[in-house]
Amino acid sequence: MNNSKITQIRSERRDAAENRQRILNAAIELFEQNGVEQVSMNQIATEAKVGPGTLYRRYRSKSELCLDLIKDNVDQLFNDIETYLEQNHFDPPSRRLKGILSLFIHFRERKAQLLMGVEESSSTNSLRARMQSPLFNELHQLLLELFEEMNVSEETHYNSVFRADILLWALSRDFYSFQRDARGHSPEMILEQLCSIFILRNSQNT
């Protein structure tokens, strides 16, 4: 590969990195001013001074853009969960489940606006699209494994996939925001109510 080709590739990479940073900076500023839901992709492109094509080549949806903005925070969340599970691997699965729920609810409270954006579908904003996001897929797997453990340790026969689905729905933006804003429940109260539903009473005392 000749030097001019190498220079061109480096220039393209530099331009792409600069465009990405302009897009992210513009998105953060607009989100802080107006909220995630009120900001369109076209507004972000205009604020970042890039063409819509440039924006959509990097981010197919506002959901993907928001995920990039909080990627480091999401990585830290799962690092915290992994550390928690390693440090408490001798605890019963019901207690570990409560610990994971506590970590996620705390994360949702701190990153509410961006997480709301991540959960938006690129086109229909459907529940299926939100529940199949990478964030919720990874959480689903963790919950599924704990529910399977609970079935073994408590000699129950609940459908673990169904339970994980329902619990994730309860943690999704629509349900969680309704409980916080309309019902006036605190994060601590939501956590306790979820545990009372998904964890058997005798398990909560072990």
Rank of each mutant, 00 (worst) to 15 (best):
M1K: 07
N3I: 12
S4E: 13
K5D: 12
K5G: 08
I9N: 06
I9P: 06
S11Q: 15
D15P: 01
N19L: 01
R22G: 04
L24A: 05
L24N: 04
E29S: 11
E32A: 14
N34H: 14
N34C: 08
V36L: 06
S40Y: 00
M41T: 06
A45I: 04
T46D: 13
A48M: 03
A48H: 03
K49D: 14
G53D: 08
T54G: 07
S61R: 09
S61T: 11
C66R: 05
L67R: 14
L67S: 12
D68I: 02
L69H: 09
L77D: 06
L77M: 09
D80R: 10
I81E: 02
T83S: 08
T83N: 10
Y84K: 06
L85K: 03
E86Q: 12
E86C: 10
P92W: 01
P92T: 10
P92V: 15
P93G: 07
S94K: 01
K98L: 12
K98G: 09
S102W: 05
H106K: 15
F107S: 07
E109M: 09
Q113E: 15
M116N: 13
G117A: 10
G117V: 11
E120P: 00
E120N: 11
T124M: 13
R128C: 08
A129N: 04
M131I: 10
M131V: 02
Q132H: 15
N137D: 06
E138P: 00
L139T: 04
L139M: 14
Q141M: 08
Q141G: 10
L143N: 03
V152W: 04
N159G: 08
S160E: 13
L167Q: 09
A170N: 08
D174N: 14
D174F: 07
D181Q: 15
A182C: 03
R183P: 02
H185T: 02
P187T: 05
P187K: 01
M189W: 07
E192W: 03
I197K: 01
I197F: 04
F198L: 07
I199V: 13
I199P: 00
I199R: 00
S203E: 11
Q204R: 14
N205F: 13
N205P: 00
T206K: 12
